[in-house]
Design a protein around this nucleic acid. Structure first.
Lengths: 98, 98
DNA sequence: GGGCCGCTCTGCTGTGAGCGGAACGCCGCA
DNA sequence: TGCGGCGTTCCGCTCACAGCAGAGCGGCCC
């Protein structure tokens, strides 16, 4: 169960990047609006850093998201993750098909 | 919108405490199962510390929760928060009634 | 080939995560 | 009523890391 889930920072980071790209924005644009460095936003998106609560608020705010929007989206991502895990997905099967 | 929401660490901490108490557990019990100090768990629950992703996983795991359970619960909490805010709740009105 | 752009890498410093010992309040019992 | 135990919080500490500035890398265009 919990062994198979991503860590919080990976889950969060992936969603933030997906949303930023969906908005057609560059790292520097979103970072500037959030008041953080582009380097740092890159790290957060790649799950390399643990953002503080204030940073989470600033970055999601810059993407026009409330914490509610964010947690709902993360729940969706985790559901998809569980569904994928339940489908007995095997990377080696894909490699052989390619 | 985002101005009126709680910070992530407060949101998370409140839910973890509520769930622990709902399980009828003491700080020390849950902390031991999570492999953290009781002092630290107390701090996390009160939103005084920013737990790392591994700590979030350990504590929620100790409460029998997946990250999905957790994010769903947090979304519910935020919805309640927004509903309360939308009802034009006024602390001073309550104080006068008491 | 050089400049520009977008993103990532590298190294740094001050801050805070996580914890051990102590303190506090509450409760039950002799 | 004083004491011990329990549950939680306070306090101070150390070292890891959050957040960032400068540099590096690859791609694209003139």
């Amino acid at each position: 169960m919990t062994d198979l889930e991503p860590l919080w920072r990976h889950l969060l980071g992936r969603r933030l990047r997906v949303l930023r790209l969906a908005h057609g924005e560059k790292l520097a644009e979103t970072a500037a609006r959030a008041g953080v460095s582009p380097q740092y936003l890159s790290e957060v998106e790649r799950g390399l850093k643990e953002p503080s609560s204030e940073m989470i608020a600033a970055i999601s705010g810059a993407l026009g998201l409330s914490l509610l929007d964010l947690t709902l989206g993360l729940s969706d991502d985790l559901r998809s993750f569980h569904e994928l895990a339940a489908s007995d997905y095997r990377p080696s099967a894909l490699l052989m098909a390619a």
